[in-house]
Computed example of a mutant assay.
Amino acid sequence: MKGVILAGGRGTRLYPLTKVTNKHLLPVGKEPMIFNPIKQLVSAGITDILIVTSTQHMGDVVNLLGSGKEFNCDFTYKVQEEAKGIAHALLLAENFANGEKIVVVLGDNISDTSIKHSVEIFKKQGHGARVLLKKVGDPERYGVVAIDEKKIIQIEEKPHHPKSDYAVIGYYMYDHKVFDIIRTVTPSVRGELEITSVNNIYVEDGELEYDIHPGNWTDAGTIESLRFASEMMLKVENQMFYISGRGEA
């Protein structure tokens, strides 16, 4: 199983902090933001990791992260030349995945709790996809699920009238079919290939499973959420904890 971190985009909601740097290099607690997604994958036993970022920031990202030796993993890098959505960026990982299952983490997702348990369940899942959900106070910012006790019925992207307060957060797990699915997706009104469209195709096929992420979580894509992410991680000294107990750092 391989890992993909999507760290492109323009970071417009964090302007002017992002005027001279990639948002994923901004500090969260005591470390650059991108360290947390890396730790998530490594904590789940995934050490072959592709990092997708923008042309203008690739040099800074590579200078910070290097080969991956510091994190006990191996990095590959890929440039997303145009910001055309999460699914567009993910399509760049097709050759890297080479038919294996992948775990995808958005570079601005921050949590103090490992996704290891969900990754282990996905390894046994056989086929399809798996996403993580979290109850949020502002669901209109996210892809929001309508769910029954066992299945996701639908995911709606940034709804004006959310059907629930459970958001799909930026940890996605896919089988090899995801790249073929992306190629069938029609760009949204903002000209992007939306990951919600990809996930909804898995829903239609009855192949999208989910877990509720048990730890503290936020994205760090706005000034307010970046501050919250820093406060959250400073409380735990930027450590990652496992589901089985906060004593197992």
Rank of each mutant, 00 (worst) to 15 (best):
S111N: 02
A229T: 01
K150S: 13
G9E: 01
K135Q: 15
G9P: 05
T184K: 13
Y15N: 02
Y15M: 03
L234R: 15
K30Y: 14
I201A: 07
V62A: 05
E157Q: 11
T18H: 04
A167Y: 00
S164E: 04
V4Y: 04
V52W: 11
I155Q: 09
A83P: 07
V198A: 03
S197M: 06
I110D: 00
G191F: 05
Y242H: 12
D112S: 03
K123N: 13
F35W: 12
P32T: 04
F241H: 14
A249M: 07
E237P: 01
G221E: 00
H127Y: 12
E94Q: 12
D108E: 09
T18N: 04
S244C: 08
E70C: 14
V136H: 02
A167N: 01
G29E: 00
H24M: 05
G45N: 11
I152F: 06
G3I: 00
G137C: 06
E94V: 05
E224G: 10
L92D: 08
F241P: 14
E204A: 14
S114H: 01
G128C: 07
D175W: 08
E194G: 04
G59N: 14
V62Y: 08
K23Y: 09
V203Q: 02
K151M: 09
A7R: 02
K84A: 13
A44I: 03
Q125P: 14
M173P: 15
N199Q: 12
G45H: 12
V168C: 13
Y242R: 02
G9L: 00
H176F: 11
G68C: 14
G59Q: 13
D112K: 00
G66W: 06
P162D: 09
T218L: 01
Y166F: 12
G206Q: 11
R141D: 11
D165F: 14
G137V: 03
A97H: 11
R141Y: 14
E140A: 10
F179D: 13
T12S: 11
I153N: 15
F96N: 06
M240T: 05
G99Y: 05
Y210P: 09
L50Y: 05
E70M: 15
L133N: 07
P37K: 01
Y15K: 02
R141H: 14
V168E: 06
Q154D: 11
V236Q: 05
T21I: 04
G215I: 02
D205F: 11
L92E: 10
S111Q: 02
D74V: 07
E120G: 08
L234S: 15
I243Q: 07
D60K: 13
Q125Y: 11
T21F: 02
S67W: 07
A7W: 03
R227Q: 08
L193R: 10
M240V: 04
